[in-house]
Design a protein around this nucleic acid. Sequence first.
DNA 1: GACTTTGGTTGCGTACTGAAATCAAAATGG
DNA 2: CCATTTTGATTTCAGTACGCAACCAAAGTC
Lengths: 385, 385
Amino acid sequence: MVNDMRRLNRTAVLTELMRIRPASRKQLAAASGISAATVTRAVEQLIAEGVVVEASELVSEQRGRRAVLLDLVADRAFVVGIDVGASNTRILLADLVGTPIERRELATPVEADAAGLAAWLASAARDIAGDRWDHVAGLYLGLPGAVGRDGSTISNAPNLPQVEEPGFHDLVRAHADRPVRADNDANLALLGEQHFGAARNAPTAVMVTIGTGLGAGIAIDGRILRGAHGVIGEFGQLPAGPLGTRLELMVTGPGILRLAAEAGVRLDSPADLFATDAAEPVRALRAHFDQAMLIVLTAATVSCEPEVIVLGGGIAKSLARDLGRYETVLEHHLGAAPRLTASELGDFAGATGAIVAALHEVYRGIGIDERAFGDLPVAAEAEAR
Amino acid sequence: MVNDMRRLNRTAVLTELMRIRPASRKQLAAASGISAATVTRAVEQLIAEGVVVEASELVSEQRGRRAVLLDLVADRAFVVGIDVGASNTRILLADLVGTPIERRELATPVEADAAGLAAWLASAARDIAGDRWDHVAGLYLGLPGAVGRDGSTISNAPNLPQVEEPGFHDLVRAHADRPVRADNDANLALLGEQHFGAARNAPTAVMVTIGTGLGAGIAIDGRILRGAHGVIGEFGQLPAGPLGTRLELMVTGPGILRLAAEAGVRLDSPADLFATDAAEPVRALRAHFDQAMLIVLTAATVSCEPEVIVLGGGIAKSLARDLGRYETVLEHHLGAAPRLTASELGDFAGATGAIVAALHEVYRGIGIDERAFGDLPVAAEAEAR
DNA sequence: GACTTTGGTTGCGTACTGAAATCAAAATGG
DNA sequence: CCATTTTGATTTCAGTACGCAACCAAAGTC
């Protein structure tokens, strides 16, 4: 316990530096409430550890000595975020402060078995990192399935069954020779949108992804909700409509096509459902879709009262102009409604979130207070890229 | 920052003492990882503050000096929890460690205006406290409406509109001359069940209360979810059934009677719906009810994957023997299901939760780590009463 | 070039901790 | 019945880290 004070102050200074990056010693002292002397000593230690450097001096028109700006050593560590989709895999490489450096989009080798997929993922990560590989601190995978709290056991991934193989996680880790963690892709997409996208400054938010399936991530006070069995966000399992059909079968791409076929309506693609000049039978289908969507949105709203609900996935793109209408109905039903908005990061939301999650692991490792993760404005940085 | 170490250790010792109450200095040192010397000094301070006392010595058959057991000064402070229902008001008085001392059940003066109700509540609190009133640290109100995060602004309380009056909270505080806080009654009922009832040891839990209305409280990792507008847990707003009726109108007492009347079935009371020897038309109604219940339960499950869902309120009493069936269906739909169980605290769940919430305020005041509130086994104590 | 202003560092007294020695209070056993 | 053992609590003491304040450093101002 005797060393605690020192560690506490180190953490406080480092955390504050992340928040107001870059910053001078004086700023850090003021922001953290720690005396200037102690900040000097803490910074000294952080510099010795190689976590922090003295960057350029602050140029100002004031008189007096110029403040020395401190910053994290951005290239001290890199992280790889991989969103492994059922058809495409998106990969991002970012540095310690979240600046994206490389992005790739590859076809997922769906025919490969668990071992093959694991090897492919590891080599893709090595590939995107190039000669920075030595500094890659870890990989984070977004997977289309339920991932246990530990970030390694995977279940219920019908669209990519390989990853359910018990040894899959270990295989990736062995091939990459790096720490590997995983999470549900919807969770990561939300995390991405919260830091870099449509849910900025919304610690409590929901992201609903509608494509070939329906998934949702829920974040409360900046923390992603994770359950033991991955049923969180499975709003698609709610029954809806006259026949009690599962919502999932009504709002997803395949579901729309199937319902249309059953109703004797011909749709070339799910997007046709949202055409403004649609014919009457399509309109009726559309009404059913809207009803189903409202159930999803209502369920999401009453489950945590998010500040914003982000809609992602293929179907969501067609919904942009209906969000205002949905909002109005929600407001009318519930008395209060979250802001509805389309995903800003699109296909790369998951990979971006994987980067964020990976960075959080790194930050944990260098001793940043976990409770501050929500405040870290990595966003501003990456936006400016 | 220089005083931090001392306060930190004081907090750690006090928190540990709450967990393993009563305990010797040595136990506290071992449990908290703080050196015995420091524990001695911290305890010295706590005793001087009047927060802790040396209780009886630990009698053991070992040789050696006997450990002096320390305990909180239970009668240092009392709290009053009041569950203000639309018809009945339940009041509890408890001491600092959560031992219930008095309980009352009174008819709510529904005709009174805001000022009258406030005065009545304050005098009821004074009354139950008796000569302990001087030591009452605060009041906590459970209200049938949406309560803002601050615990004072109240809205959307159709069944007890007086409490929506802007000055209501201040009036109670003025009459009681004590800190007063409020929360939604469903939230408090859940808090009560988590500490003393059916959701013991379930930091993530949902409580659904079905009576004249439908309300739900959600707790995640020991923290009650609170929204700005009180729509959290409003699962009753979900549409269900062929006509898209709001669930609230299908599973609550009045709703059941109305639906029965519409279907031309005569029910004397909502409970008749659950008779095992019911006639065919009643059975059909019952099937609709079950469907609606399953939507509520599914929505609750996918919103946070609770370990347990507690069912409370009048209707829930009739459901006891169906919980297993519901569980099976949930499990089948979602692959995993929470435990379903009936409320253990019954009508007093809300008041009990108010006590817990009030105690948390007191604990915060004497410097116990908020993150430990979930671990405080106030439960064991009160059970033994 | 002295002065002012601002940022960072160093010296010093204070406060608090943990390890170990010591004191306290019980049972044991010859 | 008293020395011994055992266990719990306290005190002593050395060490660490803090904040304050004095001091150094580096810039602009007059």
